[in-house]
Amino acid sequence: MTLDPALLARLGPLQVRARKVMEGVLTGLHKSPHHGQSVEFAEHKEYAPGDEIKHIDWRAFAKLDKYYVKRFEMETNLRALLVLDASGSMAYGRGAMTKLQYASVCAGALAYLLARQGDQVGLCVAGDGGTSEGVREFLPFASSPTHVQELLRMLEGSQGKGPTLLPAALDFTAEKAGRRALVVVLSDLFDATEQSLPALKMLRSRRHDVLLLQTLDREELDFPFDDPTRFLSMEDDRQIEAQPRQIRESYLVEMRRFLESTRKELARSDVEVEQIATDAAPDRVLLKLLARREAA
């Protein structure tokens, strides 16, 4: 069973919606790259000087008359930082949810999932009006239930307005994330300065695991307008009158070129990109995403 976004929108507060999404998603496993303190046996390794003596498998010694050391995989504390783009363009959406609402649901569900398995999660809301440039609100890493509640409250209170300040927010994130962390960016990436991609690459170059959930509205993808329209910018004063039917073909070409170039350029820098439309079931999107990460 999948969660229809229209149905999800009617579920009330974000906590409910996020939990619902989380419940729809299978529990993910984040495997630690560090062997040692473990709960699950992984393999045997022939003893070598320097190995912990306490890890010697004496049973194996009894059977084989050789020293073998047990190796384990352990579930470790993942540090995940959710970066939510709260610029004006993210407020677009004439369907069940705006892009910002949809991204918030996904972010909330991810926060639930991470906290539930003991991972630390933080939040950075990118936008104007905050204490730091490009950062409207910031919540440091933690995994307690109250922390998650605070995070969900912040998500629900965020509003899409102002220009896209994602590059500055990502710089801030790079500083605050400290050691290696998972950085999940939720944005449409409609950045007039075109500095967002370099900022994402910069994050990756600091050895963070970067995942971009590029959130787009179905109307932005299909441009289904017919009547003469004066299009107004949601981030500045720009506006233009156009005959949508006459420019549709050209618009779609431009949009496809943008999505394709974003995906390819970030892929070259090993930044994972998931381009999602707001009419897709968020649990399915997350499930697919987590399954792919697990397989990787």
């Binding site: 007039a192 932005e220 003469p228 004066r230 910018s233 156009a242 618009y251 431009e254």
Partner: peptide, 18 residues
């Protein structure tokens, strides 16, 4: 005639096309 207004997120692409 005067067209109806619409706040649109992807206005950059409309501008380019136009």
């Amino acid at each position: 005639r005067r067209p109806r207004p619409l706040s649109f997120g992807a206005i950059e692409f409309v501008l380019r096309s136009q």
